[in-house]
């Protein structure tokens, strides 16, 4: 737990890593839209291939990518089971009480499972290949148009970057508090679920107290560094699109076109 991959970033020198974060975020959105446009198995195959190729190009070991699925595996299984058992249209294969398994239900559930898998894998591919700082910068840049409606884009970006920055500090803090409690005879890994949950309470309270103390000091440190001194804040790092990004746009656009064509049966040509 202590070595929680920070924002899950997996450092490597690859095409995907070097893409502008905005490109990755936008491609991610396009991909998610595409996944929801899928109807036939061919389109799912296209989504699968696009994802697999991206993962291979990103040079991230398959194992690290699959690790991110583990966390949501439970949700995927539950969704599949519920979909299978309660989908009642189509040819009945098996039935008991109010539960029926139909051919249609199986197909629907398998498609649902693929969608969820693709969603999780594609988003984690973004966080695996982008540093948290870059991700925040990319989001800030993409949200810039919202400044027109007085949305505090910059403040939101700062909040995100500070939140990310404090995750390891809080991890450390939890470690310290747990050790202090253990030294006084507390036990966190025995007993049933409820007992364990109760044992966490004495960790959470000191954690919150220290979080507020930290917040106080941080606020002062922000003031000391003239936060909000001028509305014309500058940035040291500027995001720039390169030829790589253009390639990624073209590929993503082509992918979306294929999905749309598959959905419409090549605009009625097939």
């Amino acid at each position: 737990m202590r070595d929680v991959a920070f924002g899950q970033f997996y450092p490597a020198d690859s095409f995907v890593h070097k893409l502008d974060p905005r490109t990755k975020l936008l491609a991610g959105i396009v991909y998610i839209v595409a996944v929801f446009l899928c109807t036939s198995y061919y389109s799912y195959l296209a989504c699968f291939l696009f994802l697999v190729i991206s993962i291979i190009v990103s040079r991230i070991p398959i194992r690290s990518v699959l690790k991110t699925v583990k966390a949501v595996l439970f949700i995927i299984i539950i969704t599949v089971v519920i979909n299978i058992l309660f989908y009642s249209d189509g040819k009945v294969l098996w039935s008991w009480w109010k539960l029926t398994i139909t051919e249609q239900g199986l197909i629907f559930a398998s498609k649902m499972a693929m969608r969820l898998l693709f969603l999780v894998l594609s988003t984690s591919l973004i966080t695996l290949t982008t540093t948290p700082m870059n991700l925040t910068d990319g989001l800030e840049s993409l949200l810039t148009p919202l400044k027109w409606i007085k949305f505090p884009v910059h403040d939101v970006a700062i909040i995100m970057s500070i939140a990310l920055r404090f995750i390891p500090s809080f991890m450390e803090e939890i470690d310290k508090i747990m050790m202090a409690q253990k030294a006084r005879g507390a036990s966190f890994d025995t007993g049933g679920l409820i007992k364990r949950a109760k044992a966490l309470l004495p960790i959470l309270i000191p954690l919150f107290v220290s979080a507020f103390r930290r917040a106080d000091e941080l606020a002062m440190a922000l003031d000391a560094r003239c936060y909000n001194a001028t509305p014309n804040r500058t940035k040291m790092k500027k995001l720039t699109f390169t030829g790589r990004d253009v390639v990624a746009w073209v590929l993503t656009a082509a992918f979306l076109a294929i999905i749309i064509m598959l959905r419409t049966g090549f605009f009625g040509l097939l």
């Binding site: 970057s161 500070i162 990310l164 003239c226 936060y227 909000n228 001028t230 040291m236």
Partner: peptide, 18 residues
């Protein structure tokens, strides 16, 4: 409690950026 960014150069740039 004084650092705002998770990369050192970004943290140092924070003041002049402001």
């Amino acid at each position: 409690n004084q650092m705002v960014a998770s990369v050192i150069e970004d943290d140092i740039a924070f003041g002049p950026e402001n």
